[in-house]
Each structure stands twice: as C-alpha cells, then as structure tokens.
Amino acid sequence: MAKTEIICAGFGGQGVLVTGLIIANAAMESDKEILWYPSYGVEMRGGTANCNVKISDEEIASPFVKEADIVIALNEASVMKFEPRVKAGGTLIVNSSTVKPRKYRDNIKVYEVPATDIANKLGNPRGANVVVLGALARNTDLFEPAYLKQSIDSFFEKRGRDNPKNALCFDEGVKYFD
C-alpha cells in the first residue's frame, strides 16, 4: 500500500504512544516515509491518549489523520471515539479485555483480541500493546510478523528496556488469529 494512516488510542499508561512509535520505527527501517504525531493536551496515567502514524512511499503532507486505514483501540472510550473514523473497508483492532462485546460497523474489519488478559497470563502486564501489535501484523499487510517482532525487540533494546517476554506476547497476538 502506498499510504497507510493509523490511529492508536487507549488509556494513558497502556503504551499507546509507544505502540505508534514502534510502528513508525518499523516502517522507517524498511525505508518508508513516516510521521508520528501525539494527541496534544493533558495526558496522564488513566486518562485517554492517542497518536497518529502515517506511513508512505512519498513525502507526507499533514501530520494529522482524519480518516484512518487502521485504528488500534485499547479501551472503550477509544472505540467510541475512533470507530467512526475508520475508512470503509478499513481495520479496527480492539483490546477485548477492556472493551465489552458490542456491535461494530459492518463495513470495516474488526479483530478483537483479549490483549490485557494474554499479557497478564504471560507475566508481562505492560505488554498488552505488544499483543495487539502481533494481531496487527497477523491481520494486515503492513509488516511480516517476523519482521515486526524483531523490530520491537530492537526498538526496546535501543532504549535499554529489552524484555524477553515481549516476544512471547507478540507471538500470542499472532497465534490468537490462527
């Protein structure tokens, strides 16, 4: 795809902004133009946070995403706010550990994964976002799962925060849709 626009949203503290950065970094390292933009305002642990990621073969114009190809929603508030902004035919990935079963738009693809439960079970409670990245790689054309998996590890390694349990979380996110 020549151009992909993504919104990641959830509670502050769920790693929403980092999730977007991981996607941006993986795309940059495969020679794409990227742009990441944080929601702007008073964000804190427990509040809502979101970021926009744009990936393109060409120069990127605006930093803002109006309609997204992919929305990653880690909590209920994010589903309510951003489901309407998924393009027709686009993808919505939902953390079903924190979002109650509901009816979604029928002109989008919805993938529900109990990311928080999986991460907790694997002893990596802050790894729900990595589970979701597994679901993203499995269900979209954005990245090969193996590529994204190593890219996540190198992302955290560079920041001195590598955690072997991230790879487990990622694999579970992929396998959940087998």
Binding site: L21, A24, M28, E33, I34, L35, W36, Y37, P38, Y40, P63
Partner: peptide, 10 residues
Amino acid sequence: DAAIGQMVEG
C-alpha cells in the same frame, strides 16, 4: 511551529 516541533519523523 508547534506541529513541526511535536511531530516525529526519521
């Protein structure tokens, strides 16, 4: 400006 200052690019 605020947009260029806050945005992340490679």
